[in-house]
Amino acid sequence: MIIDVNTYLGHWPFRKINHNESHSLSAYLKKSQIDQACVSSLNAIFYKDTQQGNLELAEEIKGEGDFFIPFAVINPTYAGWEKDFIYCISTLKMKGLMLYPYYHGYKLTDDCAVSLINLAAKMNVPVHLPCAIENIRQKHPMDTEENLSLSQVSEVLSLCSDADFIISNGSTHAMAKSLKNIIDQRNGEVFFDFARVEVFTEDLDQLIDYAGIDHVVFGSVAPFQYIDPQLVKLNYLKTDDLDKIKYKNLSRLLRIK
């Protein structure tokens, strides 16, 4: 069994993406042995009002049973964010919060972001911080010039010490090393995926050493990336606790039975 922490539905403005509708994406993921997937709306990132994308997502995945685990994209600088977030969690039964400071023009340490993250912590909702969506070296001229800022993450981990975080799609082995001392002093947990970490060097072992086997999760970045590179890593990873990485850690975090 595999639960995927990082998949997307919707339109990407800068490149044609295949499998970006719910039925097509679920089929694509199931073909690669993925049993459930956290999913969020790409449209929400680019709409001024992210909530319109969240509502679209909720509608889009209705026919897929419990295969998709929806996460809400919220921009804490936009009017009504608090009401929108509560609606996504309480009414739409979304399980997590996606933040994109590098698309929405704020810092994770800004008051509005800290308030949102603390609200998420109070509601037992994990906060997912993707380091990027696409590799920045191939960016469209209109795409963001930034990736997730390690220094902002470092500060917000302390400012919001009760919140649970998921950090994905970046050099998470290096981040886990840099953030270890801060993470050790927090109440909340921090999970990392290995989408951009190599199994054939010492990097993935380093991620497990610093994050701990209980805090490494599977993320494919589908449909942006092939899923097979992540499956290759599972195939070659030497650990007795592979099931924790494949699904147990996320099941625990998201309280999935």
Binding site: E198, P229, Q230
Partner: peptide
Amino acid sequence: DMSFSASIGKMLGA
């Protein structure tokens, strides 16, 4: 080019 899993995975997934 130092990215075995990405390069192998691309071929398997294509």
